[in-house]
Design a protein around this nucleic acid. Structure first.
Length: 478
RNA sequence: CGGGGCGUAGCGCAGUUUGGUAGCGCGCAUGGUUCGGGACCAUGAGGCCGCGAGUUCGAAUCUCGCCGCUCCGACCA
């Protein structure tokens, strides 16, 4: 069991810095543990349930937009990776290679997939013959391996779980539409499921995905003002379909390469919700993915009827589809309160002898710390409404936090000041790679996205001072 | 791969300066009293002091080498 008392005390006094706080929360709330191989992570049941709930919510949205799931191999011939020049350049440094089987060296090296574009394209080239085969809308839930130099649980691990959608389309327009549609699916999911306000837009040339023509992303603001790229959606044009010789006969009888997209989110989302919602007491889980939405804590359970009443309430809530847990462990109530607050359960329901007498229970919400008394009658509706309230409140808080930490800046002094005081910077940029990397070199803040709303906030580049027409966000990033 | 910090019980640490029986708090186990915001009493289990060499009558402590973790940079979902 996590030593929560010590933990809460530490961070209450603390000047423990944010990364350390983050790691402590992950470990002590039993979301994950380090694996024996450096940079790998074991996702523990409590953390995995969050992932399952994320999967479920996303999968539903993918299906609704016409996508089907499939699975492709973990091992990819190295030669596939070489077919798209930018792609191999981007990924080669961090791919794990399989070179031997037993003592025998393989004739062709294999990579453990860092992403599946290449193998999926290889298969697509065999499947696609006619415009009648298009569009092809497929998603894969899988693990991938990228050998990163430094790692942090959920945010960057050598192996991680994700989904990657890979679609083919007849026209460029349709593919671009798909790219933006899936970005919108992600944005809606972030707000309505994870209760996280995100900033969406297009990546600059230097920040885009290796091999993409256009990359769009959603950036989430963490509590320390740093940005986390929470999901991406790419338009590939025909870069890959040409490289992998995917061709179809169009209506006019000519052979064409289809236009392609890919889009993905990963277990990093769990890191995002920890760092976007947490507080000094620990996790604050958004109700729609929380493994335990309502924890039931019997008070004085040795007294007559308490355990029975707790079980009875549990049954009612379960039937109403609420994820509950009755905490029957032999610990003092205060101990359990604190532990479940650390583990982020949105609602705590206390039921004791006094309540039973009065036909009521005590409800405590994690987001505001408020306690209230509720009648046991119709308790399932009360809880459901409260869960929705909590969600709405968390989203409103996230919205408020993000928008109060965006500073419009006109020059480098302002930008540096804003970035160093934990803000996102919204500013004008001339579009040159030189200015972008100059900002990064001077402040450690990188360009995040160019928002869709390009209403100018000035007319001069924040860096070089020349005429500028691009609105862009800069921020330090994870 | 560079720069800092740290490796002693499951967790958090003291002990290292000045070598001399392995310690503390929490957790864990057993029994009892408790239970509405981190309860209490009693008893108990638990250690290759990161690894390997060396110095010494004697090493957690001194010397040399190695390994691991972690934070900060460069690289990245």
């Amino acid at each position: 069991m996590a030593d929560s008392k010590q933990f809460v005390k530490e961070i209450a006094d603390m000047k423990v810095d944010f990364p350390q706080w983050y790691t402590d929360v992950v470990m002590k709330t039993e979301l994950a543990d380090y694996g024996p191989v450096k940079g790998t992570m074991v996702i523990r049941p409590y953390g995995y349930e969050i992932w399952e709930n994320i999967q479920h919510a996303l999968d539903k949205r993918f299906k609704e937009t016409g996508h089907k799931n499939a699975y492709f191999p973990l091992l990819i011939p190295y030669s596939y990776l070489l077919k798209e020049a930018e792609h191999v350049e981007g990924f080669a440094p961090e791919v794990a290679l399989v070179t031997h089987v037993g003592d025998n060296e393989l004739e062709e090296k294999l990579v453990v997939r860092p992403t599946s574009e290449t193998i999926i394209c290889e298969m697509y080239s065999r499947w696609i013959h006619s415009y009648r085969d298009l569009p092809l809308l497929i998603n894969q839930w899988a693990n991938v391996v990228r050998w990163e130099k430094t790692t942090r649980p959920f945010l960057r691990t050598s192996e991680f779980l994700w989904q990657e959608g890979h679609t083919l389309h007849i026209t460029s327009e349709e593919a671009k539409e798909e790219t933006l549609k899936m970005l919108e699916v992600y944005r809606e999911f972030m707000q309505n499921v994870l209760a996280i306000e995100v900033i969406i837009g297009r990546k600059t040339e230097s920040e885009k995905f290796a091999g993409a023509q256009e990359t769009y992303a959603m950036e989430a603001m963490m509590l320390d003002g740093k940005s986390l790229q929470a999901g991406t959606s790419h338009f590939f044009g025909t870069n890959f379909s040409a490289a992998f010789d995917i061709k179809f006969s169009d209506r006019d009888g000519t052979l064409k390469n289809p236009y392609q997209t890919s889009w993905g989110v990963s277990t990093r989302l769990i890191g995002a919700l920890i760092m976007a919602h947490g507080d000094q007491r620990g996790l604050k889980l958004p109700p729609r993915v929380a493994p335990v939405q309502c924890v039931i804590i019997p008070i004085a359970p040795h007294k007559e009827g308490v355990n029975e009443k707790a079980a009875e309430i549990a049954e009612i809530l379960k039937k109403a589809g609420i994820r509950i847990e009755v905490d029957n462990r032999d610990q003092s109530p205060g101990w359990k309160f604190n532990e479940w607050e650390m583990k982020g359960a949105p609602i705590r329901l206390e039921i004791g002898p006094r309540d039973i007498e009065n036909g009521q229970c005590v409800l405590a919400r994690r987001d505001t710390n408020e306690k209230s008394i509720a009648p046991l009658e119709n308790i399932e509706n009360t809880i459901n409404n409260l869960l929705n309230d909590i969600h709405d409140n968390m989203l409103a808080q996230s919205h408020e936090f993000v928008h109060s930490h965006i500073k419009v800046c006109a020059n480098m002094d302002e930008l540096t000041e804003a970035v160093n005081t934990q803000n996102f910077v919204k500013t004008m940029w001339c579009g040159s790679h030189e200015c972008e990397s100059a900002v990064k070199a001077a402040t450690a803040a990188s360009s995040r996205v160019m928002p869709f709303d390009q209403t100018p906030v000035g007319d001069k580049c924040v860096c070089c001072g020349k005429k500028a027409d691009k609105v862009v966000y800069f921020a330090k990033a994870y």
